[in-house]
Each structure stands twice: as structure tokens, then as C-alpha cells.
Design a protein around this nucleic acid. Structure first.
Lengths: 110, 110
DNA sequence: AAACTATATCGTAATATTGCAATATAAATT
DNA sequence: AATTTATATTGCAATATTACGATATAGTTT
């Protein structure tokens, strides 16, 4: 075995897992933070920002894109990557919900 | 090769990545949601809630615990797992921050 | 068109994750 | 003390991820 049994879980659970899994690497967190830090999204220098080889960065970008966390538009011979707001809003809503619920039932044993 | 180059990233980036990575599996999302749904945290029946064998569930619980997302207290011969509020608050703050920043710079090209 | 620039893909080695049967541990019950 | 119950650990096979050199692709510049 070794493959995740996605069929046993809900679409929502699988989607949240896809988003969090895609963020589950420091290089991909760094990419998101870099995309946040630049003003425009015409940013063809992500490779220079990261301590990893170009093919590795390209692969990380692909994973973020597959998960729907970033979008990439061809801009001449460069590619303009930027954050896909929708997916990050979804994650925010998910964690805000959890934190709110935890706040309400402060009566726990641990 | 094959191992993540954590040393090149900040402690904060690595920590967020550890938390999101731990959540990056539908079974672990399901565990978190189950822990949210039960009133008390005396819950020794997580295995029955999930479509996975007992050792597999135990392993997922271990990963959530290692990441600091849940806590486990021994309660007789059962173990009382519950969510570690701090780590989920940290994730909430992280994504609230990102969403707020994205809201502010609506002027993007894509 | 040749050279350059930016990015993607291929191939592959090293490592990590997923899942489970078998077994171990340890408290509770009989 | 033997049995049961709840959970963890071990060992292993299948699969996935991480990283990068080499190479491909495609637009840009000269």
C-alpha cells in the first residue's frame, strides 16, 4: 500500500487536506510569503528568492498551482504567478471556524 | 537528496509548514473534526470513527501530536485526546493575516 | 536566424509517507 | 492471575515526495 484512501473521506475533508498538504513544505510557505510581499504579481524571480535549484522551485510552484493556491499567467517569456485568493479565504474560514468553536467550549478536561 | 532542506528557511516558515503538513491528510482532518464534534475529550473511539485500521489511526494521531495539534492524556486504560488550541489559533492568525493583506491590495494584475 | 532568458519536463537517487498484520504494552475486569 | 480492552510499536510493502542535473520549450533580443 502507501496511497492515501481518499475515497473514504468527504470532498470537503479531501479538499482541505489538499490545500494544507500543498502548504506543508517550508519552500512553499516561503513562495506564498514572497508572493504576498511583492506589489504586483509580475514576478519571474521566485527562483532567485529561494535556496533551491530551478527545477525544484518549478516543481513546488506546480504543486501550489495544482492545489489551486496560486495562479500563473504567461507574460512574455516570463510567467506571472500570484496567489489565488479564493483558496486562502477557504483556509481562513476553516480555521476561524475551528477557533471560534474551540472558544465556545472552553469547558474541556485537558 | 529527498529530504526537505529545512535549514534554509526561517523557524516560523518551518513551523507553519509542520502544522499544515500534519493536517495534509484527509484522515487527520477527519480526526480534528471528530475531536471538535465531541463534547468532552474523553474519546477512545476515534478508531471506530475512521475507515482505517487501528495501527494506521494510531500513527496519524502520533503525527498530529508530534506537530502539536493535539494533546493526549492517559485516562485509565484509554487515552483522552483533544485539540491543542494554541496551534490552531496560530494557523487561524496566519491565514487571517494573509487574507487581510490580500484584501488590501486588490489592485493585482491577475 | 542565432543567442539569450525564463520556465518546464524528464529521469533518477534519496528519503518519507501510507497502510496494515502481527505483536507488545498496560490498565481494567472477571 | 487470566482475560479483556485500549492503544502503541515493529516490520514491511506500496507509493509519494524532495531535490537536482540534463534537456526541452518558447518567447525575446541581438
Amino acid at each position: 500500500m502507501g496511497a492515501t484512501k481518499t475515497e473514504h473521506f468527504t470532498d470537503y475533508q479531501n479538499h482541505i487536506a489538499i490545500l494544507t498538504k500543498a502548504l506543508g513544505h517550508p519552500a512553499r510557505i516561503a513562495i506564498i510569503e514572497y508572493l504576498m510581499s511583492v506589489e504586483t504579481c509580475i514576478c519571474g524571480d521566485i527562483v532567485n528568492e529561494l535556496p533551491l535549484a530551478q527545477p525544484t522551485v518549478s516543481q513546488h510552484l506546480k504543486e501550489l498551482k495544482n492545489a489551486g493556491l496560486i495562479k500563473g499567467n504567461i507574460e512574455g517569456n516570463a510567467i506571472c504567478y500570484c496567489i489565488d485568493e479564493k483558496s486562502l479565504t477557504k483556509l481562513r474560514d476553516y480555521f476561524v471556524n475551528i477557533s471560534d468553536s474551540l472558544e465556545k467550549k472552553k469547558s474541556n478536561c485537558c
